[in-house]
Computed example of a mutant assay.
Amino acid sequence: MQKEINKESIVTIKIATPDDAEELQKIYKKYVKNTAITFEVAVPSVKEFRDRITNTLKTYPYLKAVYNDKIIGYCYASKFITRAACNWSVETSIYVDEDYKQLGVGSKLYDSLEKILKEQNITNLNACISYPKIEDEYLTKNSENFHEHMGFKRVGEFHNCAYKFNNWYNMIYMEKIIGDHENNKEPIKTFDEVREIVKEKYNIY
């Protein structure tokens, strides 16, 4: 059942820590077990989640949405391609507790993520999205619609590239340009290098 957010309470965006691993894993577990939104078929352990958060934060932001002391969603950035020439491009990922969807939580998370990535000199956001040939109980086109709402545009599609729940699914790539592609581009900054700026400008900590 979808929950309602009390307008007197505020959804706050904060930096996730490895100690949040268990709560984040609970959100992700439902996506793995019940949907084709993620192509993972085995639920990562809490330890694996902790390691993922730790490794992500070495370079990129990992954010959580908190409502009444409960984590109701999270998002993060990761390397798009490991080659150094692609350092200015990242892949974005987002998961919202299914009880709190369509309440603006995802938009708030992505808005904050984008602000931080701009401070890091990132120029390109790329989203790798599971896509149904025909919508079914495991996968709809909601992810594509959400990313379109956030300013992403579809740039490519891979066909029948994933098999889950006895169905073949496609994958689409969507991108959003958030920076200038000038020559002599400054190197990207790590998340730690912009952490204090993010705290002061956007009150995210």
Rank of each mutant, 00 (worst) to 15 (best):
D111L: 11
I72V: 13
A36N: 10
A84G: 11
L109Y: 06
D111Q: 15
T35H: 04
S89A: 14
N34M: 12
V41N: 14
N87T: 12
I94F: 10
K29N: 14
V41P: 03
Q25D: 07
P44C: 09
G73T: 04
I72D: 09
Y62W: 15
I53R: 02
I81S: 14
Y76L: 01
T54A: 01
K29Y: 13
L109R: 03
E98Y: 05
K115S: 12
D99C: 01
I27V: 04
S93I: 01
N121I: 00
K118Y: 01
W88V: 03
L57N: 02
Y74E: 01
V66Y: 05
E98F: 00
S107Y: 00
R50S: 15
Y31M: 12
E48T: 12
A77E: 08
E114Q: 10
A77V: 11
Q102P: 02
S93K: 05
T92W: 06
E114T: 15
K33I: 15
K79F: 00
L103S: 06
K79M: 12
Q120H: 05
L63K: 00
E98T: 09
V96H: 05
W88I: 05
P44Q: 07
S93Y: 04
E48S: 12
R83G: 03
I81E: 13
L103G: 11
E114F: 04
G104K: 01
K108F: 08
A77T: 10
V96D: 06
V32R: 05
G106P: 07
Y74N: 06
N87I: 13
Q120D: 07
E119R: 06
L103F: 09
Y95A: 07
N121P: 02
L103K: 14
Y28E: 09
I27L: 02
K26Q: 14
V32E: 06
I37H: 00
S45P: 10
Y74R: 03
E119V: 06
K108E: 11
D51Y: 07
D51M: 07
Y95I: 08
Y110K: 13
A65M: 03
T82Q: 13
K115Y: 12
K58Q: 08
S107W: 00
S112M: 14
I37R: 01
L113M: 02
I37D: 07
L113C: 02
P44S: 01
R83K: 14
Y95K: 07
T35P: 03
Y62P: 05
I71F: 01
E40Y: 00
I27H: 04
A65V: 04
T82A: 12
L63H: 05
L117V: 01
E98V: 03
A84Y: 11
G104W: 02
F39D: 03
D97R: 02
F39K: 08
L109E: 03
A84F: 10
I27M: 04
S112H: 15
A77F: 09
K101E: 13
A36S: 13
K47P: 00
E48V: 11
T59K: 12
I37W: 09
T35E: 03
G104F: 05
Q102V: 10
K58Y: 00
K58R: 06
Y31K: 10
G73N: 00
V66H: 04
K101C: 12
A36L: 12
L113K: 03
D111H: 14
A36V: 07
K58H: 00
Y100D: 04
